[in-house]
Design a protein around this nucleic acid. Structure first.
Length: 198
DNA sequence: TATTGGATCGCC
DNA sequence: GCGATCCAATAG
């Protein structure tokens, strides 16, 4: 049960996004632990990346993207859903990885309650869905994933994902981003049943 | 101060 | 394919 540490996150965002595949996201709640294997991520880079919230510089919402690695960046999208990101790179180097999908591991019962469905494949196969399943909202925004008392953190997996099981693709929902919409900054595990769908 | 549109989801 | 529903970001 080894938490990922600061040096893991303080690297190039695309590298972190890729290496997060297979790692385990853990949520501590009053009802116990809820966890899942990270099977899909997207990298959002700095001000050059037209799809990234950081591209217009620091604002009240995105300021945590400019912090040192290992903080959570959680925001509300479309007025309804939350998106979960982990901040990457060193202080003043904006970047974050969007966690798009999980393979459920523990706390299945809680996830079903939180998501109001019995269908396991529909619990965590999308960024908004996994936040609902793990009870993640903006109360956790700007908190650290690195502390002993973190309510949300990532545990190192014993199993590493072989290179030939990792797929790269353009990011989803960023058609407005010019040449950046086609960059292969989305990473997912091939043939995994919980990859989000278009 | 007003307007616009989004790193989504679920139902029509 | 479209509406839900909030609020950050920008323009005026």
């Amino acid at each position: 049960m080894q938490k990922l540490k600061k040096y893991f996150f303080e690297r190039k965002t695309a590298v972190v996004a890729k290496e997060l595949l297979g790692q385990i996201l853990v949520r501590k709640t009053e009802k116990g632990l809820i966890s899942g294997i990270i099977i899909e991520t997207e990298a959002y880079l700095g001000k050059e990346d037209l799809a990234s919230h950081a591209n217009r510089g620091k604002t009240p919402r995105n300021q945590i993207m400019f912090a040192e690695g290992g903080f959570w960046y959680i925001y509300l999208i479309y007025g309804i859903h939350h998106c979960l990101n982990i901040v990457t790179e060193k202080n003043n180097r904006p970047g974050a990885v969007l966690i798009r999908a999980l393979e459920p591991l523990r706390g299945l019962k809680e996830m079903k309650i939180n998501r109001q469905t019995e269908n396991i494949k529909n619990l965590t196969n999308g960024p908004g869905k996994l936040c609902q399943a793990l009870k993640i909202d903006r109360r956790l925004n700007q908190t650290s994933a690195l502390n002993a008392d973190s309510e949300l953190f990532i545990v190192q997996s014993k199993i590493s994902i072989p290179e030939n099981k990792i797929k790269k693709a353009p990011r989803i929902g960023v058609d407005y981003a010019g040449i950046w919409k086609d960059k292969p900054l989305r990473f997912y595990i091939k043939d995994n049943l919980f990859v989000s769908k278009r």
